[in-house]
Write a protein that binds this DNA or RNA. Sequence first.
DNA 1: CGGAGTTAGTAAACTGCCTAGCATTATCCA
DNA 2: TGGATAATGCTAGGCAGTTTACTAACTCCG
Lengths: 385, 385
Amino acid sequence: MATTGTDPARMREMNQLTIVWALRGNPPSTVTELAGRTGLSRPAVDVLVQQLVAEGWAEVEEPGASSTVGRPARRYRFRAGAGHVLGIDVGVHKILVMLSDLEGNLVQSLRRPADPEAGPDDRLATVDRCVDEVLREAGMTAADIWAVTVGVTGPVDASGRTSLFTPLPGWNAVDPVAHLTERFGCPVQVENDCKLAAVAERWKGVAQDADDIVYVLAGIRTGAGLIIDGTLRRGHGGAAGEIGALKAVRWLDAPGHLAGCPGVPSTAAQGEAAAWVFRAAREGDRAARTAVRRYARDLAVGVAALTLTLDPQVVVYGGGFSRSADVVLPMLRQELTKHCLRLPELRASTLGDESVALGALRLALDEIDDRLLGGRLAAPAAPRV
Amino acid sequence: MATTGTDPARMREMNQLTIVWALRGNPPSTVTELAGRTGLSRPAVDVLVQQLVAEGWAEVEEPGASSTVGRPARRYRFRAGAGHVLGIDVGVHKILVMLSDLEGNLVQSLRRPADPEAGPDDRLATVDRCVDEVLREAGMTAADIWAVTVGVTGPVDASGRTSLFTPLPGWNAVDPVAHLTERFGCPVQVENDCKLAAVAERWKGVAQDADDIVYVLAGIRTGAGLIIDGTLRRGHGGAAGEIGALKAVRWLDAPGHLAGCPGVPSTAAQGEAAAWVFRAAREGDRAARTAVRRYARDLAVGVAALTLTLDPQVVVYGGGFSRSADVVLPMLRQELTKHCLRLPELRASTLGDESVALGALRLALDEIDDRLLGGRLAAPAAPRV
DNA sequence: CGGAGTTAGTAAACTGCCTAGCATTATCCA
DNA sequence: TGGATAATGCTAGGCAGTTTACTAACTCCG
């Protein structure tokens, strides 16, 4: 344990951060409320909160019409608009950019289709244009952004590169962190899409109550993201959750059962074929149900491997196929029962395809919190790398 | 973030704990050394350390012959003997009890063979007798023990019971936590043997430098324990690492390749058969090498599933077969290469069959540290449940 | 309309902790 | 024996948070 000694100055910093955390995510609060929430005395909170206001971290709401007896209290509010973060989902088919304030409130977002065949420079240029547009519509510049997180498919190493593999054409040749850092100057991180989606499910999705989560991204591609003890786990080389690479786990072929189902209109694209099969299965079509069952059977082996390894509380079923969770989950549950010692809860994601960008926002916000924790709490300003 | 406000009293507690940690695991230290180590000022350390001495947590070593110029410094030492903990390995074939002081120094240990067929009450009675003997030889009573951790095979739930399954005959019927708590009154925990062995490898074994560790217990039984981000991971229901339950992972059958190897003396017991095969393989015996290769192939599927899921830094190969790591590891490495995206380091355990009891000691010590962190630092005394 | 009751804001006294600086003490070496 | 060195011990000063008491602002009700 590398605990280091604490002096009064450090104590004050800690208490100031405590106030920040007590303010954030709560409605405008009175000094008395904050004192109760933090365990500090009222005078102490008063001094601290006034300093926060002076520094620009909080703002005062002068008392208005009071509904209760007694002198109406001044209310203090975290100045969420002091800084903003970007969450970017760089997908094969689309780019999704989200801009939020420091409380995670969505300020602006933009979705643009992307050419699946587009090269890395093209794709990066599209990202740049989307970011430009989002900033412009929000009336901001790059200097207003405090942190950026980007989600891409494929395992991402510590430097933000997808050196092992990625379905994004040529993407392993680019260095998105360097590109965006040059532009923003603030902390930039790149992360795997499944991992970000897992973070989003714990933040705003169906797994807010859980600390041990396996997120399964089910779609044309299949992947997984892991949250253990409330923290996103990347693994030593950033490749945690890549159970699909195991040959005994037939994740690569699993969606093929859907595309190859007899009766699928031959004109349908791959994604539409799956949707057709799920719909047919829902209506009781024999062949479609068989196809879904085969899909579930293959999916279950990988999910079981993850579940047996980690024994999570919740498995979240997300990704493009999660809209058809009503068809898949019962079958998946049945298959998992055969493999698992202890069946975790199975829940279907409700965040849709915004989960990656949302998770990116959350990670960017976490980055800022980490900086606050480490450094001294100074006047609000974008951290620089 | 549920951070709570800090006042000067809490600050003092924290600083006192900081001193405790700086004392422990170091040779007797001067005030100046402690000040440097903790970042506190010399007078502050002086006051704190004197209070620790008064409370019984530390003791003074009066200056002896000084080797350098200047006034010789008083040295302070953590009073590791203020309390003791027990680590107990309840195996199928043996009971191993270890008694250590608060610094983890072994004070007494005892190994007794156990009847593999013995019922749970018999086994528990043997444990009791071993504990009695260890305490007696160390000149202690149950009241001197501050924490007890017990290792058993099979997944252990939060209450310390092996409700899912266990190779210990009838063991799921007993409640060892209740039994030992009644006897000791101090915190008692029961944990899975593989998990404890993993902890031991990080504490005193071959993985001291790693934070993300997969420990594989290889022997007649095969199992795994996981350390992620420096912390033992139990999973939500205590069944993390039980990848062997997956049918596609042939861990149950894997040792069979060794027992079934042509040429094994028919008189050999199961454990001896494996040892014979490893020895023969080391000497170049064709059939033995094939058997070991098959064993490695089956083992590798499970290790690959764990590795792909967690992307650890190190895989530790432990258990009874780890003495033959020189034969197995190269083959295992070769097989893993076929499955994994990023091959972790493979290391052979050197702790032998003491790893479970050692890990139990470590967990018991951790329990005490947790109590210290939470409560106020009072005079040294056994925590009571 | 004004006083009682309630709640918020503020000031002062007190306690506790850490730091800085200086005097004191003990040992070694010339 | 005296100077250099390094550790201990002590005192003053500053800072943070708590407690207590007092003032300010507002509502309710007679």
